[in-house]
Each structure stands twice: as C-alpha cells, then as structure tokens.
C-alpha cells in the first residue's frame, strides 16, 4: 500500500466499495440511532414516572453510576456467547448503556422544576398528566437534553465494540486496524468517530434550542440568565 493516510485515500470513501468509510458510517449511525431510540422509549417514560411521583427515586439516582460501571465489552461478550452473533446482542448492550443517563436526567429534570409552578398548574385545575406534559416536562427539558446528549456521546463511541463481534460500523476500522497492525486505519477510525460524536452533539444542541421554550432557557429575553442551566454540556448529566 502507499503512503496516503488511510483517511485521505479516496478509495476508502468510495460508496461503491463494500466496507468503505461511508458504509461503516451509515451502519454506525444506524446502530446509534436504534439504540438511542429504544433506550429513550424505556428511559423517558420511566424517568417521568419516577420524577412525577417521586417513587423509585433511588433507582433513578443510582442508575447513572451503576450503568456506567457495567463494562460494555463484558456484557456484549456474554450476550454473544449466550445468544450467538447478530445485531440483537449489540442493541441490548448499547441500550443498557444509554438508559441510565436519560433516566437519571429525566428524573433530575423533573425534580428541578419549581414546585410553585406545579402547584400553580394544579390550582388551575390541570390533571396529573397535564401537569406532567405541559408544565414539568417542558421545564425539565434542558436537563433531559443533557442526559440525552451524554447518552448519544457514549453510544457513538461505544458502538465501536460491535465490530469485535463481527458486525459493521466504524469499529471495523479499529478492530481490523488492530488485527492488521495498521495504525493509520485505527487513527482514521478514531477521527471519524469523534467527528460523528461532535456532529451529533451539535445537531442535538440545535434541536434543543428549537424545542426548549425561550421562557425556560432565557434565550431572547434580553436579560442575562439567572444561572447556568444545569445541563449545558453532555458531560453534565454524567455528573448528576
């Protein structure tokens, strides 16, 4: 092979070549999107339930660190050994990874809502569900987004383990590069994964600006924000 860095060689970006970077990128995005979707479908309702009722708070508070302590490589190895190869073991392992930050941040977001606002909403005759969806959730959104972004960041970086069990995704560049002692390929993998993570985080940041009411984020109100929102960066939710 020649001296062109792996990342810059046009043939590695050629869509018509199976296993080229665009294919791996697409597969990686697919794994990420599906895992985050399934994870959010589990964690959001559960987090809202716990945050709204206050029951099960222990679970929500400790889910974050417990989830983080579970080694994904081990979980995936176990699932593959018990189930056989395929996407399902990878999906389960990544969902287990993404549920805790979303769950913890949803709970924390709901808890951070000013009780006066909730009381006021009740006083206006809103039902429990209305209070949750119209008052608590919108006010909790900045924090919820923090957890979501942290989760996405973790999944993008961890989805690389899929390659270890014979699947596709950007992890192929890492695992194959390692097996072939091709350091350029590993670097290419690292750069593309990091770039993808940044791009997705920026995208979610934009969505967040769109979705969070200006009345809550303090944007465009012509006054400085009273305090830094709890979750400005994806790393925040981790610390919760």
């Amino acid at each position: 092979m020649d001296d062109t860095p792996y990342l810059l060689d046009p043939s590695h970006w050629d869509w018509s070549v199976a296993g080229s970077i665009p294919h791996l990128l697409l597969a990686h995005l697919g794994y990420t999107a599906l895992s985050v979707l399934v994870g959010a479908l589990i964690a959001l309702p559960l987090g809202m339930l716990i945050g709204h009722t206050g029951r099960g708070a222990f679970l929500a508070i400790n889910a974050g660190n417990a989830g983080r302590s579970l080694p994904t490589l081990g979980l995936l190895s176990l699932l593959v050994t018990l189930m056989s190869i395929g996407f399902l073991p990878v999906l389960i392992a990544l969902v287990v990874l993404v549920v805790p930050p979303i769950l913890t941040s949803t709970y924390a977001g709901l808890r951070s809502v000013d009780p006066n606002a909730v009381d006021a909403a009740r006083g206006m005759g809103m039902s429990g569900l209305q209070v949750l969806l119209r008052v608590e959730l919108p006010m909790a959104l900045p924090v919820v987004f923090g957890g979501l972004r942290a989760g996405v960041l973790q999944v993008v970086s961890t989805a690389t383990v899929a390659a270890y069990t014979g699947l596709s995704g950007l992890g192929r560049l890492l695992v194959d590069g390692l097996a072939l002692n091709d350091y350029g390929r590993v670097v290419a993998g690292a750069v593309v994964v990091a770039a993808l993570a940044i791009a997705l985080d920026l995208l979610l940041g934009l969505v967040q600006r769109r979705v969070v009411s200006p009345g809550i984020s303090g944007r465009g109100l012509g006054r400085s924000r009273p305090a830094r929102p709890v979750a400005e960066s994806p790393l925040d939710a981790g610390v919760l």
């Binding site: 993008v156 890492l174 695992v175």
Partner: peptide, 22 residues
C-alpha cells in the same frame, strides 16, 4: 476547556490504546 473535554471523551478508548505507542 469544555469543548476539548467533550471531544476527547468521544474518542473510543480502543483507538487511544492502539495509537498511544506511536
């Protein structure tokens, strides 16, 4: 500091382990 931390944290550990010797 915040931005760099975020980027660093998004690099997969396997890649760092393999690249560091170089």
């Amino acid at each position: 500091l915040l931005n760099v931390s975020g980027v660093v944290y998004s690099i997969p550990s396997l890649a760092v382990f393999v690249t560091l010797p170089y």
